[in-house]
Design a protein around this nucleic acid. Structure first.
Lengths: 204, 204
DNA sequence: AAATTTACGTCAGCCATATTGACTTTGCCT
DNA sequence: AGGCAAAGTCAATATGGCTGACGTAAATTT
């Protein structure tokens, strides 16, 4: 139950917090110090709220299994990358072996993920979702899909393309190739497009 | 130091994980079960990676002060909403009083945030950033701004508008009014636009 | 004036998820 | 044989959440 205090929001911005206050204060300070312009607070905060709600739906389902977000991430990437090695999973998630170990063990013990010895390199334990695991992964993805589809459908034609490109550009440049590879050739081309407003830009 | 294992990425997708594997497996399963179409995995994963890197920059700075993300969030929203009440901050962050208490106390003790009694309601401790606190908030926002600006500049003209609308639509519908109010009238109108897939095109 | 509610804080304890560093086992490769 | 890589494990620690219970001051209602 991630979302319980919805109704207790006293409306977020209190009566005492008139936008006038904010404007006045921010205004005076901005004038004095803006050497780099005003940050895009709207996008910064929209990212915060959007991401929060984006992850909230799966949380409620996961808690039924006594799983958390960590389990979700592992399950998701294993489901999406069958036969992935533990090492590669660590690189994707950017966590330590120990952190992964705990949640992975639970997922394996409870039959969501299975490990098969690598056919070429027998040191590897290649990870796969079981039917059960795949089912859960799909269920969670479907929840997020519904939210995304709704948001995209409120956009102009090319909206999804633009969003994909934006998000891709938000990724550290040196990691983009890896992410691009992971998304697959189709998505990759969708994500790159002719990325420039003018003609410049940074592809390659 | 959030980002240390960059160089140890054995390239993310291992040699053993050929896209053929994934395609084969996913393909066979999809055929059998697609009653709702394939989830937009690209957007799901792009959100994950983008948000991760988006929050990574500030982390490195924060760790110099022995602060974490929790501190960042508090500092940010106090800086953006001068004279905010504790109750409202709790509603925005959706955490408990206890959780907030810990980090808020540190921020106050170390002179980043100050509390002033409410002029009307003396039970309130209205929160403000100090110069020091404001400076840090700005520094962190600037880091995120740089990344966002770079991403936006790789987009077509109306790109930022589209992204804003997308993110806004990703927020729970019942919370949108609150977020909208927080962003302020200017940003709000930018975020709403005529949200239809058909005759849009985002002016204003 | 008394009762209730609100705003804020705090104590005590718990849990999930992450970290580091060291060490082992197994197996690949030269 | 020696070295390196893949995976697992132990122990200790930090962070950021959580619940429940209480306390105090001030505002509001009855």
């Amino acid at each position: 139950m991630a979302d319980v205090n919805f109704m207790t929001l006293s409306s977020f911005t209190s009566p005492s917090l008139t936008k006038t206050d904010a404007a006045r204060l921010a205004g005076s300070r901005d004038a004095a110090e803006t050497s780099e312009g005003i940050p895009p607070y709207d996008l910064i905060e929209l990212l915060f709220f959007a991401y929060r709600d984006f992850t909230a739906d799966p949380d409620t389902v996961l808690s039924e299994f006594d799983f958390g977000r960590a389990h979700h991430r592992v399950l998701h990437f294993v489901d999406r990358n069958p036969a992935i090695r533990v090492t590669d999973l660590l690189a994707i998630l950017r966590i330590t072996k120990q952190s992964l170990g705990r949640v992975l063990k639970q997922l394996v013990d409870e039959g969501f993920i299975e490990q098969r010895p690598g056919p070429l390199d027998r040191r590897q334990r290649l990870l796969h979702t079981t039917e059960k695991g795949h089912g859960l992964a799909r269920k969670l993805a479907a929840m997020q899909a519904r939210r995304i589809d709704a948001a995209v459908s409120a956009l102009p034609e090319t909206g999804a393309e633009v969003v994909r490109r934006f998000l891709f550009q938000m990724i550290d440049p040196d990691l983009r190739p890896d992410v691009g590879r992971m998304l697959g050739p189709a998505a990759l081309s969708r994500v790159q497009g002719s990325a420039g407003p003018a003609a410049e830009s940074s592809e390659a």
